[in-house]
């Protein structure tokens, strides 16, 4: 029995938990509840998959984290215009923001790999819905090589199979803020859904609604029929 184990170890076909040398260094997200649930914060490098519908604050919650990084922050294929004005007033330097609008999905992946590998970027934010396991693995390796982290934003509607990523979160809208489900994390167990109350961080976004009777959503001036 021992011989077989020796053989397997020699060929590096066997992985033993005690050998694990890679430390899961965490960086605080700036949101205490999230830090607590993620065992201290986001991993230093690797792919963070965020499955979320667009517009519920899925980028907003990472901004305090992104702000602590000093190298380039690259936006690849964002769904709309990145509001550099807001990022600047939050404390980003406009010199450290880079936007890439590739013409094809293949080019987007190529650009993210180059950015991750380059050592010049600290974080890459990629909006990409269809990612194969091999591609995700490649991005994971690139991010470890370049010590950068990749935020992969995908919409939850499509049926995804699980990708080999460092951290996978599912976000959904909730009355008090955002409901977060940790689907997968390296060096930890998946967590069931918890609600992130954003009131402390963005009070305007989570306070009780104002009287809203005066909103007229379908102005007749446009002639749009619902």
């Amino acid at each position: 029995m021992n011989e077989i184990i020796d053989l397997l170890q020699h060929r590096q076909w066997l992985w033993q938990g005690c050998e694990q040398t890679q430390s899961f260094e965490r960086v605080s997200t700036g949101i205490s509840l999230l830090d607590e649930q993620l065992h201290g914060g986001l991993p230093q490098q690797g792919v963070v998959e965020v499955q979320s519908p667009s517009g519920i604050g899925e980028l907003q919650i990472w901004l305090p984290y992104l702000q602590t990084k000093k190298d380039l922050t690259v936006f690849i294929n964002p769904p709309a215009h990145v509001n550099a004005h807001q990022l600047y007033h939050l404390g980003f330097d406009n010199k450290q923001l880079l936007l890439i609008q590739p013409t094809s999905a293949k080019e987007a992946l190529w650009a993210s790999e180059q950015c991750l590998k380059s050592h010049a970027c600290s974080s890459v934010l990629l909006w990409h819905n269809t990612l194969a396991i091999s591609q995700s693995k490649r991005l994971q390796l690139a991010s470890e090589h370049g010590k950068a982290s990749l935020f992969l934003f995908r919409s939850p509607k499509e049926q995804h199979f699980s990708l080999p990523v460092t951290l996978c979160l599912e976000l959904s809208a909730h009355k008090q803020g955002i409901a977060v489900k940790i689907k997968k994390q390296k060096g930890g167990r998946p967590k069931s859904t918890f609600v992130l109350n954003l009131e402390d961080y963005w009070p305007q976004l989570a306070s009780a609604p104002l009287e809203s009777s005066n909103v007229m959503p379908f102005p007749s001036a446009f002639g749009i029929a619902k």
Partner: peptide, 29 residues
Amino acid sequence: LQRMPKQQRPSMLLPHAVPLQEKVTIYWG
């Protein structure tokens, strides 16, 4: 420029403003 971290601005701007076509609840403004 002088930074104004208190102002509320979205992180994504639409290329062009589009007419509002759904029911919304106002939270701030």
